[in-house]
Amino acid sequence: MNKVIDLCLSKFKQSLHEVSPSECVKKALHITSTNHLHIRNNVYELHENVHIVAFGKAALSMVVGAEEQLGRHVIRGIASVPVGTRFI
């Protein structure tokens, strides 16, 4: 029975991770080998020219996802989160 509980708990944690704001942002940003950023039907040329603006309860997590995906292309950013917001 413990194996079943452990498996269920593991899958639950994995599911939470997959729908986290950080992961959702990373999945939404598709970068090609030619440094083009694809977001839905829009394409942007990347050359260290990205500014990030975020606000709200999920802003911190979303910024982390964007930075992980965009890397060196992020040159500046600002995020406003409610007082007491914790990053998970």
Score class of each variant (00 low, 15 high):
Met1Phe: 13
Met1Asp: 01
Asn2Tyr: 10
Asn2Asp: 15
Lys3Val: 10
Asp6Leu: 13
Leu7Ser: 11
Cys8Pro: 00
Cys8Leu: 14
Lys13Ile: 00
Gln14His: 14
Gln14Lys: 15
Ser15Lys: 12
Ser15Pro: 00
Leu16Asn: 14
His17Phe: 15
Glu18Gln: 15
Glu18Asp: 15
Glu18Gly: 08
Glu18Ser: 15
Val19Met: 05
Pro21Val: 00
Ser22Val: 00
Val25Gln: 08
Val25Thr: 07
Lys26Ser: 12
Leu29His: 10
Leu29Lys: 07
Leu29Ser: 09
Leu29Thr: 02
His30Glu: 14
His30Met: 08
Ile31Pro: 10
Thr32Pro: 07
Thr32Leu: 04
Thr34Phe: 06
Thr34Lys: 15
Asn35Ser: 08
Asn35Ala: 02
His36Tyr: 08
Leu37Gln: 05
Leu37Tyr: 05
Ile39Thr: 05
Arg40Pro: 05
Asn41Pro: 07
Asn41Asp: 15
Asn41Met: 04
Asn42Lys: 10
Asn42Ala: 13
Val43Pro: 01
Tyr44Glu: 01
Leu46Pro: 01
His47Ala: 13
Val50Glu: 01
His51Gln: 11
His51Asp: 08
Ile52Val: 01
Ile52Glu: 04
Val53Ala: 13
Val53Leu: 12
Gly56Phe: 07
Lys57Ile: 11
Ala58Gly: 10
Ala59Met: 04
Leu60Thr: 03
Ser61Lys: 03
Val63Ser: 05
Ala66Met: 04
Ala66Ile: 02
Ala66Gly: 06
Ala66Pro: 03
Glu67Ser: 09
Glu68Phe: 02
Gln69Ser: 15
Gln69Tyr: 03
Leu70Phe: 09
Leu70Glu: 10
Gly71Leu: 08
Gly71Met: 05
His73Lys: 09
His73Gly: 07
Ile75Gln: 09
Arg76Tyr: 03
Ala79Ser: 09
Ala79Ile: 00
Ser80Gly: 10
Pro82Ser: 06
Val83Thr: 11
Thr85His: 02
Thr85Cys: 06
